[in-house]
């Protein structure tokens, strides 16, 4: 027993180490990509106001932009680890403050859409394998085709058009209801088909047949014997949804004027506010890497076979 526990612990530690490596690799990549962009922050400022060449040089020195990329990376990382992401060039505020202001909106939005998507997908998929009728299966296909055919930003635009312009129901902008529904359905559509296939295979699985041969009540068969089998795939699919949420969050925040990380990032990109760009992407990516690691570890803890 204790040996098993040590094995699990070692595997978890290994996964966490991989997570840190991934996060570091991505942060470095993002840092370098932002450095490749022609023109730096000072150029942007110079274009806005009158800055003499000397002032520009002084500013570059002050911001550390005259040092090598490696040195800048080390300095930035060290500061970031202590929660200091530098100053916004446009707003002259600490980036960390701006992130802290934007984060709750994005977290609320992302978790609500995630929950809506998971609930819809599971409800439809379970209904489709248990009802035995074609209607629920058709619903699986319909939701799946919907998410393939209608990119979320198109649905969002049409949604605003219909709800706000034609029906006159206000206010749409600034409200999370419509975007959460749109992204929720889209998330559901991305996973409902593989989820349904997995569940259908699981209903034909030998151990589910055994449970039925024992004469167990169908609800018990589904809850105790069928669903746990689908958990690993459900975890994998949830990871997919989370990655998809990034695109959804970006577009919906911009479209519906939600003041989250997505809006912050895009405004920063357009304003060439690189410290903000870098920090916002770092936050998003580190969150994704951490969630990936968490799903892997959860999978390991749920399935007794993995630790064998």
């Amino acid at each position: 027993m204790s040996r098993l526990a040590t094995d699990t612990l070692a595997a978890v530690a290994l996964r966490l180490a991989k997570m840190l490596l991934q996060a570091a690799a991505i942060v470095v990549l993002v840092f370098l990509l932002v450095r490749v962009v022609p023109g730096d922050t000072v150029d942007v400022l110079a274009a806005q106001g009158d800055l003499t060449e000397a002032q520009q040089q002084a500013m570059r020195h002050e911001l550390g932009l005259d040092r090598s990329a490696g040195a800048q990376l080390v300095a930035w990382s060290a500061a970031a680890l202590s929660g200091d992401f530098g100053q916004s060039i446009r707003f002259h505020r600490p980036v960390a403050d701006m992130l802290a202001t934007a984060l709750p909106t994005t977290l609320t939005f992302a978790s609500l859409s995630f929950a809506v998507g998971i609930v819809i997908a599971f409800t439809i998929a379970i209904a489709a394998v248990t009802s035995g009728t074609g209607k629920a299966v058709a619903l699986v296909d319909a939701v799946n085709i919907w998410s393939i055919a209608f990119p979320t930003f198109c649905v969002g635009v049409l949604g605003i058009l219909i709800v706000s312009v034609w029906l006159g129901w206000l206010p749409v902008l600034g409200s999370m209801v419509l975007p959460v529904v749109i992204i929720g359905i889209d998330n559901a559509g991305q996973i409902v088909k593989p989820l349904h296939e997995e569940l259908r295979e699981a209903t034909a699985a030998a151990h589910v047949r055994t449970a039925r041969a024992k004469g167990l009540h169908p609800i018990r068969v589904v809850v105790v014997h069928l669903l746990p089998t689908a958990l690993p795939i459900a975890l994998t699919l949830s990871g997919l949804v989370l990655a998809g949420l990034v695109a959804g969050t970006l577009t919906m925040e911009v479209l519906f004027g939600l003041p989250g990380i997505g809006s912050l990032l895009l405004n920063a990109i357009h304003g060439r506010d690189y410290p903000v760009v870098q920090a916002a992407i770092a936050v998003i990516v580190v969150a994704l890497v951490a969630i990936n690691a968490a799903t892997d570890i959860l999978h390991r803890l749920i399935d007794p076979r993995v630790s064998a």
Binding site: A205, H207, T210, P228, T229
Partner: peptide, 10 residues
């Protein structure tokens, strides 16, 4: 096939 017939999670 008893391996497949028993619920692996229980």
């Amino acid at each position: 096939d008893p391996m497949a017939c028993l619920n692996p999670f229980m």
